[in-house]
C-alpha cells in the first residue's frame, strides 16, 4: 500500500509509535524513525527492516525546532520526498496522574511543548514536502482527548487541542491536497506492560471494559488504520479522528 513511500514517525522508539513504524514497513514504506536518542532505536530499526521496510534513524526531539527540521530535511536529502508524517511523540510524563489543583505551569509546558507546539511546528516544517506529494499528516491523539480523563487533565486538554487542530488544518490544507487526520488508540504501552507485571488484576479489569476483550496491539491493531490514513486509499478522508479502541469508546 505504501511501496517506496517515505513516512516520518515521531516517538517511534516504543509503544504505539514503534508499532506504527513496523506496520508502515510491512506496507513497504521507507520509515523515518524519529527518536530523541538514536542509540536506542537499533531494535526498532531492525524490526522495520525485517518487516520489509527501509529504516532511517533520525534524531528528532520534537521540542527542538532545529532537530525536527533536520530530521525532515535528512529524509528529503536521502529519499527525495515525504509522503506522510505521523506525530506520535508525547511527553514522558503523559501517563502520570496530574494534580490539576496544584500543578504548575512547568508541568503544563512539558505536555504542551510536545503535543501542541510540536504539532504546529512539524506541520509548518513538513508543509512544502507534503504539498509536493499530496501527502498526509496524521496525529496520534487519545480517547482522553475526546471524553476527558479525571487523572489526566493536562493530557486530555492537549490531546483535544490536537483534534481542533486536525479539523481546522484539514480545511486549511485541503486546497493543497494534503489530508490531516488523527487516530485515538487504546493500546498496550510500556507503562501498561509494567502495570501488568505489578498489578495484573487491574490490567484485567481494564481489558474487561473492552468489548473485544483485550487492549490493542500497537503493530497489528493500531498500525493498519495508520497505514490506511497515510495511504492514497484514504484520499477522500480528512479532518477526522478514527477511534481505534476495540469498541471501548462507542459514544465518541
Amino acid at each position: 500500500m505504501l511501496d517506496g513511500q517515505v513516512v516520518l514517525v515521531t516517538g517511534a522508539a516504543a509503544g504505539v509509535g514503534r508499532g506504527v513504524a513496523v506496520s508502515l514497513a510491512r506496507a513497504g514504506a521507507v520509515v523515518g524513525i524519529g527518536v530523541r536518542r538514536p542509540e536506542a532505536a537499533g531494535e526498532v530499526a531492525d524490526e522495520v527492516r525485517d518487516a520489509g521496510g527501509t529504516p532511517v534513524i533520525l534524531r528528532c526531539d520534537v521540542t527542538n525546532a532545529q532537530q525536527s527540521a533536520e530530521a525532515i530535511e535528512q529524509l528529503i536529502d536521502t529519499h527525495g520526498r515525504l509522503n506522510a508524517l505521523v506525530h506520535n511523540a508525547v511527553s514522558n510524563r503523559s501517563s502520570e496522574p496530574t494534580d490539576f489543583e496544584h500543578a504548575d505551569l512547568d508541568l503544563w509546558e512539558e505536555h504542551a511543548s510536545v503535543t501542541v507546539r510540536a504539532t504546529w511546528r512539524l506541520a509548518v516544517q513538513a508543509h512544502p514536502h507534503l504539498r509536493a506529494t499530496q501527502g498526509a499528516y496524521l496525529l496520534m491523539t487519545s480517547p482522553a482527548g475526546i471524553e476527558g480523563s479525571a487523572p489526566l487533565p493536562f493530557y486530555s486538554a492537549v490531546k483535544a487541542a490536537q483534534r481542533g487542530f486536525v479539523r481546522a488544518l484539514a480545511r486549511e490544507w485541503g486546497p493543497d491536497g494534503i489530508r490531516v487526520n488523527s487516530i485515538a488508540p487504546l493500546a498496550v504501552s510500556p507503562a501498561l506492560e509494567n502495570l501488568r507485571a505489578t498489578d495484573p488484576e487491574r490490567v484485567a479489569r481494564i481489558e474487561g471494559l473492552v468489548p473485544l476483550g483485550r487492549l490493542g496491539d500497537p503493530t497489528d491493531d493500531i498500525g493498519p488504520p495508520s497505514v490506511f490514513l497515510c495511504s492514497q486509499e484514504a484520499r477522500y478522508v480528512t479532518g477526522q479522528t478514527l477511534v481505534v479502541s476495540g469498541g471501548r469508546f462507542t459514544s465518541l
Binding site: F100, V116, G148, P153, G164
Partner: peptide, 14 residues
C-alpha cells in the same frame, strides 16, 4: 480552534 478544543476537554476533565 486548537485552543478552544483543548479548553473544552480540559473542562470535561475537571
Amino acid at each position: 480552534c486548537t485552543a478552544v478544543e483543548g479548553i473544552r476537554v480540559m473542562a470535561k476533565a475537571v
